[in-house]
Structure formats: C-alpha cells, structure tokens
C-alpha cells in the first residue's frame, strides 16, 4: 500500500520535473535562436556610417540609423516623463489605501484593463485623440501612446515595491510624530527608491521596442527628429518595420537587421544593467 503510493508520487514528481525542464529548455532555446539570428544578420550592416548617418529614402546609399536612434530616445524619454509622475502617485495611492478597497478598486481595475489592451489599440486611441484633431503625426503623440502603455506597469511595480516596505517602518515614522503623508513620501518611498527606479527603467526597456503604437502616432521620417512636437518623428521600431517589410532593396533589409541588432543590444543592456545595478543589497541606504 504505502510503497505503491510512494511509487506514484515519485512518478508524478518525475513527470512534472521533466515538463518543467522541457519548458525551461524551450524558452532558452527560443531566446538563443532569436538573439543569434539577429546578431548574425545584423552585424553585417554595422559600420561607423551606419551609426552616424540619418536614414535616407529607399534606394539611396549610405543610409544610417542616427536620426531614428535619436528620435527613439526622445520619444521614450518623453513617455517616461509623462507616465512616471502619475504612475508613481497611483502606485502610492494603491499601496497606502490598501485597506480602503473602494478607493483602489477602480484604479486597479482600469490598470488591469490597460495592461491587457493590445498596444495597437493604444496607438489607434492616441491617433483619434491627438493626431486627427491636431492634423499631424508627432513624436509627442508617440510619447503619449508609450506613456499609456508604461503607466500601469510602473504603477503596479510601485505598488509592489512599497508593499515590500515593512509596516514597522511606517509605524516607527508615525511614532516620532511624522504625518502620514510625510511618512509615505520621505520614509516609505525612500526605502523603496531602488525598486521604484528599477521599475521605471524596466518599463522603459519594455516600451522602447513597441512598434504598433508608433505607426499611428510618431510614424517615421528620413529627417532628423526636429519636429518632435509637430511632425512625423523617426524612430527605431518603425524604421525596422519599414526597412525589412516595405522595401524591395536587399541593402535595406540588411540595414533593418542592423537596426534590430542595435535596439536588441540597447534594450538588453538597459534591462540587465538595471537588474545588476539595483540588485537588492540588504545593507545599503
């Protein structure tokens, strides 16, 4: 009896472990295949001019990605500026009013809806809300679209990070006569600040590759991104789409791979760098 039960349990255990391992294997292989392919196909395009020249109309020689890179940086930083303050405030609200579900339920619900929304919808939304009324595409509209995607992500990580601050610290702060607001801003946020920065940077890394929302908002231009507020703004994701799908020229396909490689490296660096730099150290301020 006993032995038989044990046998089945062990078997179940082995089967489960087999499938977990298989899943891990699948995930890592997929990642490695993609990354190696991007490196192989993309590295051929890399040259100094590729980094220094702006993109050029189809078929012209010596085109580069400098304008798209700059535009992407502007659009993503703009998104971060737009999304971070309200997202942090909302995260604080969720965490501090944890015991008042009436206040937080609406916020939590809408954030969940936003998280699940396909990014192309966000693009369309901003298109009808900003691009159509204003009469032109713009980098700013792109920032708004990315900000909408960033908002719930930053909000939720903020909430998680603040929740990790022990209640004893809040109590200690109140116990010396600090107000609730003061406690939240000066003590709780301060002890969670590494986590908050990590959350923002990871959200940035996540949206910096988003393509669909930018197609409807920032669009693209072969110029330098001087029309951030008033006209189409070059950016990496749309450049990649354009070059690799809409162009008949082999050189541009290759440039598309090159751009893909650059953005992959940037995002991975941002992602891994953030994780290393802000890895939880117990004894740091």
């Amino acid at each position: 009896m006993q032995k038989k039960k044990l046998f089945w349990r062990k078997l179940a255990n082995h089967i489960f472990r087999f499938f977990s391992l298989l899943a891990v294997l699948l995930a890592t292989t997929a990642m490695l295949v993609i990354v190696t392919h991007v490196i192989r196909a993309g590295s051929k395009a890399l040259s100094l001019n590729f980094f220094l020249n702006p993109s050029k109309p189809y078929g012209m020689p010596d085109s580069g990605i400098a304008n798209a890179l700059l535009g992407s940086i502007m659009i993503t930083l703009g998104a971060a500026l737009l999304a971070t303050p309200p997202a942090i405030c909302a995260g604080i609200c969720l965490s501090e009013f944890r015991d008042r579900p009436k206040i937080t339920a609406a916020l939590r619900f809408s954030a969940n809806v936003m998280m699940g929304m396909p990014s192309v919808l966000v693009g369309l939304f901003v298109y009808t809300l900003i691009v159509v009324p204003s009469g032109h595409f713009s980098g700013l509209a792109g920032s708004v679209a990315l900000a909408i995607i960033m908002f719930p992500v930053v909000m939720r990580t903020t909430e998680d990070m603040l929740d990790m601050v022990p209640y004893a610290l809040r109590e200690a702060s109140l116990a010396i006569g600090m107000t609730r607001t003061h406690t939240t801003l000066r003590i709780v946020c301060r002890s969670a600040r590494k986590g908050l920065i990590t959350g923002i940077l990871l959200a940035l890394a996540r949206v910096s590759g988003e393509t669909a929302p930018l197609l409807f908002t920032a669009l693209f231009a072969d110029s330098w991104p001087k029309d951030y507020f008033s006209g189409p703004t070059p950016n990496m994701p749309v450049l990649i789409t354009e070059y690799s799908t809409n162009s008949p020229f082999a050189a541009m396909h290759q440039a598309g791979w090159g751009a893909a490689l650059v953005i992959t490296v940037l995002v991975l660096t941002l992602n891994i760098g953030t994780r290393i730099m802000f890895r939880e150290k117990r004894h740091a301020t």
């Binding site: 022990p166 200690a172 010396i176 003590i187 301060r190 002890s191 301020t285």
Partner: peptide, 15 residues
Amino acid sequence: RRNVGMIFQKPTPFP
C-alpha cells in the same frame, strides 16, 4: 507622539 516615544521589537532605523 512627540511626548510618547516608542521602540519596537525589531530595530527600525530609517533609510
């Protein structure tokens, strides 16, 4: 609370 200070079981230094 200024008049009545409190020390907790686990030390709670501020960051």
